[in-house]
Amino acid sequence: MGVAVARQLSGYRAAVLLGWAVSSNWTRPILFIAYSLLRPVSMALILAVMYTVITGNAAATRPYLAFLIIGTAFWSFIQEGVSEFANGILEDRGRYHILKYAYIAPLGFPIYLVGRATSKLASAAASVVIVLLVGAFALHLGINPLQIDYPLLVAACLLAFVSVIAFAITFSTMLLAGRDTNGYGDIIAQFLYLFSGAIFPISVLPGPIAWIASLSPLPYWLELCRRAILHARVYQMFPNMSDGEVLLRLVVATAGTVLLGYILFRFTDRRARRLGHIDMEVNW
């Protein structure tokens, strides 16, 4: 048992190193970090300008700016978790032709996938901090590190991490079972953007779509992050729910995502093998 765990760990470590090498060995670490931060910081600035154009930065609407910026900051996790996960798997198959070897290795395939995406998730964590710093110092959102409810933040992020990884593994395997699936990682990340409540409350969505969004763990996770950081000084998507109620919904939605993900993974994994797509030659 111990040997098996050690082998899995060592396989995971190799996948992490591979992911890091593929995503970062084109430049020096400092430039890599700078490039990784450009996108989320720019996105935050776009939203800040849109907000200013419409509201004139009136004091009464400041909680909504905080809503936008914190949502954008944490969004990086989903962006990297989903699109990079998917891009990585397709890149390993079509470009580097190594996916088949990882797939048949004794290391569990999901563990390989998580390892491959770990470095991206780590850089996403860094960009969360940077965007929050931009919010705190450039946009004066009143973020005080000493007033953050860390237990709530950590609990919410752990649950979200589990559901994002479960979703990403399932989704990546679905892409593997299909043809011509390059680029779908980005599109799905964009769709999740609409359902997550990252930059607008899900109540803005048309009725049925808002209902579907309410089944996803993402709005509850982002709501808890916002509340943990700014408490009542941020616009709330679910003003009638207590922190505990939101957390409970996050737990239930995460469990549902993991269960659904597991069923779909089993199905699509088998389908990919049946179709012979694991080592499919694609024109990259």
Partner: peptide, 15 residues
């Protein structure tokens, strides 16, 4: 989808 997201932001802001 990118445009839709931005439209919804404007709607959220009552633009």
């Amino acid at each position: 989808v990118g445009a839709l997201a931005m439209v919804l932001v404007y709607q959220g802001l009552h633009a």
